[in-house]
Design a protein around this nucleic acid. Structure first.
Lengths: 73, 73
DNA sequence: GTAAAAAGTGCAACATAATGCTCTTTTAGT
DNA sequence: ACTAAAAGAGCATTATGTTGCACTTTTTAC
């Protein structure tokens, strides 16, 4: 999962939960300015910023050994 | 997966591949200073730094909806 | 079509991640 | 034990992520 893909997933999850950027920003203690920039693919968020957001979004990061090409779907 | 856990996985993967910090730093275009700090849990790496490292380590990030407690093993 | 809410942008200040250099400590091999 | 390689730490500099404020644009609801 690359940067743009991660951004898309975060945004879609927020929308699926039906919460605004402002609300997510407040719940996650990430500034609204930072969240807005992040969702349009600006910048290079820190692990902490991502962690705060996904915690509120009920998500989790996993780090795995990449599957060989022929195993991909 | 939280910060310390991610750090542990990265370090163990590097060691499993039998490459030094210096070598990984060179291959991933992350400075040795940054890699060293990261592996001892100092700081708050950016997504780009993590992405560079896991690319070389043959790993990938996944972002998933958190499984309910009773589904965890 | 209008109004309100939500989303996106520009700018500047502040905080801190990334980096290079040098040095110390730890680990691995003989 | 000795040596060399690898890992970790302190410091200063540079680059950039985070934030708040004010404003514009887009979307949503009536």
């Amino acid at each position: 999962m690359h940067h743009s893909e991660l951004v898309t997933v975060l945004k879609e999850r927020r929308e699926a939960l039906g919460i605004t950027q402002a609300h997510l920003a407040e719940l996650s203690d990430v500034s609204l300015r930072t969240l807005k920039a992040l969702e349009v693919g600006k910048g290079n968020p820190t692990l902490e910023t991502i962690a705060k957001l996904i915690e509120v979004l009920g998500m989790e990061l996993k780090l795995e050994i990449k599957a060989p090409q022929h195993d991909k779907q």
